[in-house]
């Protein structure tokens, strides 16, 4: 089973990204689960969301405490939130950042994790004209981890959004996929 924890701020689309990832896995015939950290949602406030993917039915329904992957939609959360809590050894940090991976690694203070990053803000602003970075993060996530294929993510994005919005977001996913810096 692969467990992903998403960290973002209200309005960045972390919850949607968790659901799109689950949907992509379901499209591939896998089992998946996506749920937000439950509570009142407020724009700007830190939010968490979770995705589980497995080849077998998933019974466990509690929040993820030892993720294989954390996806960080907002670099400022690195200082304000315990985003790396419980992240497994050799796990992935997928982060929206303008800084190169080496510098990120220094900030994280963990040498036992893999890192992938992209400047999601710039991509989102360029294509969507709004700072909603979730779909850019999906591009990096699949490039780095291959938990689902790029095609499945694109399929899931097109199911999730209306035609016009989906088209733009698919462009975002692809661009982030190309531009992602991955350090295994």
């Amino acid at each position: 089973m692969i467990e992903i924890r998403w960290h973002g701020r209200g309005g960045q689309g972390a919850v949607t990204a968790s659901q799109v990832t689950a949907e992509a896995a379901i499209i591939e015939g896998k089992y998946a689960q996506a749920f937000p950290e439950f509570g009142a949602e407020r724009r700007g406030a830190p939010v968490k969301a979770y995705t589980r993917i497995d080849e077998k039915p998933i019974y466990i329904r509690s929040p993820i405490v030892e993720p294989d992957i954390v996806v960080i939609l907002d670099p400022s959360l690195l200082v304000s939130e315990p985003v790396l809590d419980g992240l497994k050894k050799n796990g992935w940090v997928i982060i929206n950042s303008k800084k190169p991976v080496d510098e990120i690694r220094k900030t994280l203070g963990r040498s036992d994790v893999k890192i992938a990053r992209v400047d999601a803000d710039t991509i989102a602003l360029q294509i969507l004209k709004v700072p909603i970075v979730n779909t850019a993060m999906l591009g990096v996530l699949v490039k780095a981890t291959q938990i689902v294929s790029l095609d499945s993510i694109i399929d899931a994005v097109s199911r999730r959004f209306s035609e016009r919005i989906a088209k733009l977001n698919i462009e975002v996913v692809k661009k982030a996929y190309e531009e992602a810096e991955v350090s295994g």
Partner: peptide, 10 residues
């Protein structure tokens, strides 16, 4: 509530 109502699955 939430644990099922808000959890997406197949």
């Amino acid at each position: 509530g939430f644990v099922l109502s808000h959890t997406f699955e197949a």
